[in-house]
Design a protein around this nucleic acid. Structure first.
Lengths: 144, 144
DNA sequence: CTTACAGTTTAGAATCATTATAAACTGAAT
DNA sequence: ATTCAGTTTATAATGATTCTAAACTGTAAG
């Protein structure tokens, strides 16, 4: 139950009221050793499995976006119908397994870019995202 | 009008009937020196401006997807509501200007990745996508 | 430990991009 | 000219996400 206090404090510090729903979602998202990659729909399923009181879909959207705005979650740019989020907010990149549709972290130390061209005009780099799509080779034709 | 024959042949070779609509779209997409980055909605506007006979939205989707499947267009993985396509189908990466929402090609020679970690299991790399988001620094808070 | 109210949650409606449907149309082979 | 598979089209359907407006709830102040 120390975790509980930790989450309550974290929310308060961020100017977010520690409601039952936000605490339940915090527990699911942040009480884990491994980073968690998820879509809202996947999160919904996990919550339904782990919590008896249901949380409305709108609240899941609200909360995930609030957490993202506060810097506790990162959105992963990946084409597809659904948006992916990541509990690992540090600078890092991903393998995307096209067979399982799973994301896998690449530690930042394990990759580097060279010969970066100069940025256009007076623009500054905000973010660099590398996604490496992998799959088994026998795979069927993919249309994406 | 040599272009016309070229497009007719290209379509025939691909097993696509050279219909009026496909030729009109081919003209818009491929009769240009610069590569063209676009969403379906943007393409629709360009077509409306350049062609008196209107093409239905469904046909735009059908045609763009057919062209993509034949390898004449590439889909760019970029988070956001709309899907981006690129007439440059070679291996290359992009700057994404968050101020203007425009994509800018990075020539492949101008960038390289080092220390690539080994791919998971027995998977093979299918594709590597690098997107470098740039923006002016004075910019307002962005929520994305 | 009540009150009061801004912050939250919620169900359901609304929106937006995209895909499916199924009827009308059209290249092109005969 | 005929025929028919391939296409186009308007429209409906879908699916993710956002909006809305009403009900609810932390919590600060008395």
């Amino acid at each position: 139950m120390e975790q509980q206090k930790f989450h309550i404090n974290k929310l308060r510090v961020s100017g977010l009221r520690p409601t039952k729903q936000r605490l339940a979602i915090s527990k699911i998202l942040f009480n884990r050793r491994e980073t968690f990659h998820f879509t809202i729909e996947q999160l919904k399923k996990v919550i339904e499995k782990n919590s008896k009181k249901k949380i409305s879909l709108a609240t899941l959207y609200n909360t995930v976006h609030a957490f993202k705005k506060k810097g506790y979650l990162k959105e992963i740019p990946l084409k597809g119908n659904q948006t992916f989020f990541d509990t690992n907010t540090s600078s890092h990149h991903h393998f995307y397994d096209e067979d399982t549709l799973q994301l896998i972290d690449i530690k930042d130390e394990n990759i580097s870019i060279n010969n970066l061209p100069k940025t256009p005009n007076g623009k500054k780099i905000q973010d660099i995202e590398i996604t490496i799509k992998v799959a088994s080779n026998y795979q069927k034709q993919k249309d994406n």
